[in-house]
Simulated scan of single mutants.
Amino acid sequence: MSQCKGEHDIAKHPCFNAEAHGKFGRIHLPVSPVCNIQCRFCKRGFNKDENRPGVSRTLLTPEDAVGVLDRAVSLCPELTVVGIAGPGDTLAGDYALETFRLVHARYPNLIKCLSTNGLLLKEKIDGLVKAGVRTITVTINAVDVKTLARICSHITHNGQYITGEMAARWLILAQLAGIDKAVSLGVTVKVNTVLIPGINDRHIGDIAKTAAQAGAAFINIIPLIPEHEFRNHRPPDCRELKAARSIAGAYLPVINHCQQCRADACGIPGGTTDFAAMLYERRAVESCQ
């Protein structure tokens, strides 16, 4: 793997580093209940059966999350990353930041990582860095306003409900400004892009080029999981996914080993043991807040 800024933070990060995948473990702490944007393919929920982002068995308070992490470290000694990836957006509330503060005080040597839509990244990155976060994933599904308006139905920001192309423009500008500032503070940024045939599949090169210009270190092209308004939209086939990754690779190193994990995942990605089932003993809650 080539040298890059923040490499010391990804050498044992199984989501950012293919060489670490299958060797080191990660846990996602489900502490973020709400989201401040609505993607047309996204359906958040609580269950123990679906294997996709946006779902969890339950929600944790920041204090409860530390207790779960204590047990996870004991169950999975290979655990090197503590992340927050939902089931809503990590920055739509303050739960993730408070969780990272508590976790960093107790486990300063664990890699702190989060996934976000990036709407509030610029506003909150200083606090995240102080709380030990050094790796971040930002989901960018378009950098063209018309294309993103087809994917994201609305955003909410400072009490404003914004739709259409205005919402798309606001989100794109916020994402790129957030990445730029995060990178300036020494954070390694990976961009996730959901490949949606017929909508953003001809836009992948623009996304990768723009993300690289903003300072992103990697890009991860992941297939659409049809849900919500896109429940009848077909996912990309292997040929389309391979082509999109090849196009993106002209601008950024491409992550090829992502498994689109749940918001409460725990263990070595691709491993045989699901430690999450052992950690979350409470009954799954029935709906998102």
Rank of each mutant, 00 (worst) to 15 (best):
K112Q: 05
S115N: 12
R52M: 07
P77R: 14
P87V: 12
R71T: 14
R101E: 04
H21V: 05
V145T: 15
G127V: 01
V31D: 00
S32K: 03
G54I: 10
D49G: 12
N141F: 07
R150A: 14
Y95M: 13
V133C: 06
N51R: 15
T61F: 00
A96S: 14
T135V: 14
S56W: 01
P108F: 05
V68A: 02
P33I: 10
A96E: 03
A149W: 02
L97E: 00
L75R: 11
P62R: 01
I125L: 07
P62F: 09
Y107V: 03
V82A: 14
L75T: 10
C39V: 04
R134C: 01
I27G: 06
R40Y: 00
L97R: 04
H28W: 02
P108L: 09
G45I: 11
G25T: 06
V82L: 02
R26Q: 13
P108W: 06
T139A: 14
R71K: 15
T135F: 06
K130T: 08
P108H: 11
T147K: 09
K48D: 13
T58M: 13
D94G: 11
G132W: 02
E50W: 11
L91Q: 11
P87Y: 09
L102A: 03
G25R: 10
P108S: 12
L102P: 00
Q38W: 12
T116N: 10
R150K: 15
A72G: 03
T137V: 13
L91E: 08
L69V: 09
I27Q: 04
A105H: 12
R26H: 10
R106G: 02
R57F: 04
P108Q: 13
I136P: 01
T61Y: 00
C35L: 04
L102Y: 03
V66F: 03
V103K: 03
T137Q: 11
V34Q: 13
L102C: 06
A92Y: 03
A142W: 02
V138T: 11
R71E: 15
C42M: 07
S115A: 15
T99S: 08
E98C: 04
V138F: 07
N36R: 05
G67Q: 14
L128W: 02
P62I: 09
E78K: 13
T116I: 09
V145P: 00
I136S: 10
V103M: 01
N141K: 03
L75Q: 10
A131V: 00
G45A: 05
L97S: 05
N51I: 15
R150F: 01
K48R: 15
V31S: 04
C42I: 08
K43G: 07
A105V: 07
E98M: 09
P77E: 12
L97T: 00
T139P: 05
L97N: 02
A96F: 05
V68C: 05
R57S: 15
T147G: 08
N47M: 07
S115P: 07
E123I: 01
K122Y: 07
C113M: 10
T137N: 14
L119V: 08
L119Q: 09
K23T: 10
G88K: 11
R26D: 04
V143R: 02
A65F: 08
D89Q: 09
C42L: 07
G118L: 00
K124A: 00
R44D: 08
V68K: 12
T58I: 12
R134S: 05
A72R: 07
T139N: 12
K122T: 12
K112S: 02
E50T: 13
A85R: 09
I136E: 08
A142Y: 01
